[in-house]
Simulated scan of single mutants.
Amino acid sequence: MGDRPAIREGEIALPHDPAARTDAGLVFIGRIRSPWARGNCPKNISKARAEKPDTWIELKPEFAPALAGLTVGQPVILLYWMDNARRDLVVQAPAHVDAPRGTFALRSPNRPNPIAAATVRITALDGARIGIDAIDCFDGTPLVDIKPWLETIDIPPA
Score class of each variant (00 low, 15 high):
G127N: 04
P100L: 02
P148I: 04
I153E: 08
A93E: 00
A95E: 14
A13P: 01
G131W: 10
P35N: 10
N44Q: 14
I155F: 04
T55S: 15
S108R: 13
I122N: 10
P109H: 04
D136T: 12
A48E: 09
Q92T: 06
G39T: 14
S46F: 07
R111Q: 07
A158D: 14
G10K: 05
A117L: 07
K43P: 02
R4W: 02
G131Y: 08
D136V: 12
P109S: 07
G39E: 13
A116V: 07
L67H: 03
N40H: 08
I45T: 07
P15F: 15
A118T: 13
K47W: 09
E151Y: 03
A48S: 12
I12E: 09
F63C: 07
D126K: 13
F104W: 11
G127S: 08
N40M: 09
D139Y: 12
C137P: 00
P114R: 05
P142E: 08
G30K: 11
D83S: 09
I122Y: 10
G127E: 01
A116Y: 01
A93I: 01
A19H: 13
L150E: 03
L78W: 11
D23H: 03
D154S: 11
K60M: 09
I122D: 04
P65S: 03
A99D: 00
A116D: 06
G10S: 09
D139V: 07
I130T: 09
I155D: 02
D98V: 06
L59I: 05
T71D: 03
A124H: 04
I135K: 08
G30C: 06
R33E: 07
P65I: 02
L89F: 14
A37M: 00
